[in-house]
Amino acid sequence: MPAVSKTATLSPAAAVPVPGASAEIVAFRPPVRPALERAGEIVRHLAGVILPPLIVIALSLFVWQLLCSEPGARLPPPTKVVADAWDFIVDPFYDNGGIDKGAFWQISKSLGRVAIGFSFAAVVGIALGVLIGQSTWAMRGLDPIFQVLRTVPPLAWLPLSLAGFRHADPSALFVIFITSIWPIIINTSVGVRNIPQDYRNVAAVIRLSWWEVFWKITLPASVPYIFTGLRIGVGLSWLAIVAAEMLIGGVGIGFFIWDAWNSSRISDIIVALVYIGIVGFLLDKLIALIGHFVSHGVAAQ
């Protein structure tokens, strides 16, 4: 009798006690497992998650080492990369003036630019997305335009941006902004469109004002969509900053790579690529984590 056990265990609030239900709860409760067994299970789970990537990485490094070890190989093997770039790896905080700085400073500078450009994109993108999502006609009219614009590669915006701003720094910020804003607008407006009629009915019955509907219904209801847009956007903005910095120069992990190429420091480039990948991955996880906390399980629905 699954119905009985479900009611009895899930709603202790039930007004009328079900005769005989308490006896059944005991029968249905799973036996308490010893802590040791649970710990073992967790270790096994972690091993299952962590081991496969470690094995794949080790294998790849091994193959790479084999392929690039002969004399005349065009790329350095992992051992040589580590040896060449040792200073760059062990001391991320050195600062020899000019653009000769450690990895920490290069990455921080790039992250700072992303933070500014992406914040603008987030605020403007969410605001526009909410406005557009209110109207079927705005959606129909603007969506094709956004769909086209979002495919323009970051670097294609740079000349236009330089022409407009005439300075490297604001241009880089603008490129980040314009690259990452489209998925934010598109996803936010879809989220606003998809707010269930039920929520609107609730708002209508308690007579929320337009502003209250916006704060208390529209925004929280579209949070999962907004964060999907933000995650795509932050990834794009990291792509964009690296590309933009290659052209505008100065301190930053993007120009660091270009500079290393011009001085034939291939090993530094490879280390920088690894850093860029890791930072991009962490940015994505960060937004996902914030989204998880902000959405309070809305996404779980």
Partner: peptide, 18 residues
């Protein structure tokens, strides 16, 4: 117009999940 003097219990509960 809708209003709180005619409160509705909806079939699918319509609670705000957040």
């Amino acid at each position: 117009t809708p209003g709180p003097d005619r409160a509705i219990v909806f079939q699918n509960h319509s609670l705000l999940p957040w």
